[in-house]
Amino acid sequence: MIDLTDVHFTYGCHPVLDGISLHVQEGEVVGITGPNGAGKSTLLYVIMGLIKPQSGEVKILGVPVNKFKDWHKIGYVSQKAALFNRSYPATVLEVVISGRAAMRGLFRFLGREDKRRAEEALERVNMLSQRYTPLSELSGGQQQRVMIARALAVQPRILIMDEPTNGVDAANLAGLAQLFKNLHNDGVTMILVSHESEWLSSFASKRVCLDRKICSCSCHYYPDGIRWRDCMNSRQEKISLDCVDSLVRG
């Protein structure tokens, strides 16, 4: 479904993705975790074609990402949407149905079919009974479910989520994990980025630990047993030295 081969991406002189190769099969749930600044969100942006890697190959459903046109087959839940729109004047149904805007096409209005699909998506996240509730009256966990429903409204083949636990309290994390288990059972391929490595491990079929490189599939420790924080400190020093070196050399 998604193939990344030897992907390199650098912000200025800071290498963010350093030779990433990742292959996601149909029906897999890939949980990506890692420390802050490890390149988790950048990896998602590269997969979705929002940023172009300096080298390497990215394919979605067998098509190079720069030639990929069927974006309605990809559902995306950004980490910003729920956080920045807490008081947006819209009902749950209005937000979810808006996920189908691109699929419907320019100069065409959303119709009954779109409403039905949006309601089906809300049913899947157990929010159908609140479809006419204003978004501002929902809790953080409920708002995140609405964002997931919006992504599901296009019936995507791949669901990509960036920090879906943002704004979700500990009590609602289990409910969110159960929702992803259900989606997994329905055959939805998912890629999730999250800091909550233990939470991810409760439902992900493949776990990837990222820190510029794919370090491990064991999410708690690096292969050599160093904790993230220690590894990250040594990495920061190395990056600084690399930067100085490259600047001196011009």
Partner: peptide, 12 residues
């Protein structure tokens, strides 16, 4: 509502 998601969905 969400420019980033709109971009990913293929909206111009």
């Amino acid at each position: 509502f969400d420019e980033e998601t709109a971009l990913v969905s293929g909206l111009p």
